[in-house]
Amino acid sequence: MSTEEKYVAAAYLVVFLFVLVYVLIMAAKLSRLGRDVAELTALARERKRAGQGSTEQPPKQVRVG
């Protein structure tokens, strides 16, 4: 491989690496966002469950006699 060929290969490799690193960083960020969505969904479900529990009517007492 001549020196010129090495430089041309290096130029193309640089472009490829830039794009690859960028996509990997973005993929990592999206993965973090996915975890955040899951966490917030769980929190919202918990809230809903707690809300339903507090709004339930207490059983009526029946006076006998």
Binding site: T3, V8, A11, V15
Partner: peptide
């Protein structure tokens, strides 16, 4: 900026040759 950085790097490699 990302494409600008790529421009500078590929341009430098071209200039070196």
């Amino acid at each position: 900026v990302i494409f600008g950085a790529m421009t500078l790097v590929t341009g430098s490699i071209w200039a070196k040759v």
